[in-house]
């Protein structure tokens, strides 16, 4: 594993994904910008960041859990291919990518919502 330094990993990813790497990086940048903008909006409105953040993490994790079972299909295998714990862990790690996209979108939407009346819970 000593051979897998960040530079090598970048080139492997670049050769694997081709121009899609830049599309994905651009998407990541847009989502990051959306998250930062959400933070700023919440701060300016004097609202807590914790609730939208927790909601985003919860929804993102659920999405990742669902995507975990779809990851084998992306590798031309079927969902039953997952067997050992390491399979599930790696599939979940990969599923965190779409999970993070979903979480980012949830956070951005939550940050845009109007403040809820006192006593109402975020949901």
């Amino acid at each position: 594993m000593s051979d897998f330094n960040p530079v090598t990993l970048f080139y492997i990813l670049h050769e694997s994904l081709g121009s899609w790497l830049w599309v994905l990086l651009a998407l990541a940048f847009v989502l990051l910008a959306g998250i930062v903008s959400g933070f700023v909006k919440l701060r300016r409105a004097g609202r807590t960041v914790a609730r939208p953040m927790l909601a985003a993490i919860a929804v993102g994790l659920i999405a990742a859990a669902v995507f975990t079972f779809a990851v084998p299909i992306w590798t031309l295998a079927d969902t039953g291919a997952l067997g050992a714990p390491v399979d599930y862990v790696i599939a979940f790690v990969l599923a965190l990518i779409p999970g993070a996209v979903v979480a980012s979108l949830v956070f951005m939407l939550a940050a845009r919502r109007r403040p809820m009346p006192d006593g109402a819970s975020f949901g």
Partner: peptide
């Protein structure tokens, strides 16, 4: 499956 993942998705890059 993780070894299959390396074969199917990792090696070519």
């Amino acid at each position: 499956w993780v070894s299959w993942l390396i074969e199917e998705k990792g090696l070519k890059g």
